[in-house]
Write a protein that binds this DNA or RNA. Structure first.
Length: 119
DNA sequence: AACTTGACGAGGG
DNA sequence: CCCCTCGCCAAGT
């Protein structure tokens, strides 16, 4: 499971491309959906190599905030791109995941004794 | 091979 | 809400 592997990255990008305009997914959420071999950290690692046509701006962290830090892409750029799609952020730079988080068809979150799972 | 560093996340104070 | 600690795992040095 190498993030330099084309297939590995392709699964991430393929899913990100399905996110509708004005909606978001989190790194951890993507990792859960893709399953074995994927973690929030590796998904984030893959994202900094996003290719053309991948709406990378729609992937944010589990707090509903932008997390890019000191890399090539400034936080305010990603946030403004999302705001342009209709996503509203508060003064703390946070958006409401209950409103904007998107799940692919056939997936939804539900709670069990084992923790949060997917259906 | 050891050590550091993240586009992360959950939990505790 | 902010800050810190850990667990995580691949890359870069």
């Amino acid at each position: 499971m190498n993030v330099n592997d084309r297939q590995y990255r392709a699964k991430v990008f393929g899913l990100v491309k399905e996110i509708p305009r004005g909606r978001v997914m989190t790194y951890g959420q993507i990792a859960i959906i893709l399953g074995e071999g994927y973690t929030a950290r590796t998904v984030g690692y893959v994202m900094h190599a996003a290719e053309d046509g991948v709406p990378w701006q729609r992937v944010i962290n589990s707090q509903g905030k932008i997390s890019t830090g000191r890399l090539s892409i400034p936080v305010n750029l990603q946030q403004s791109m999302l705001e342009q799609e209709g996503v509203v952020f508060n003064e703390k730079g946070k958006c409401d995941l209950n409103t904007y988080q998107w799940w692919p068809d056939g997936f939804k979150e539900y709670e069990t004794e084992e923790g949060t799972l997917l259906f």
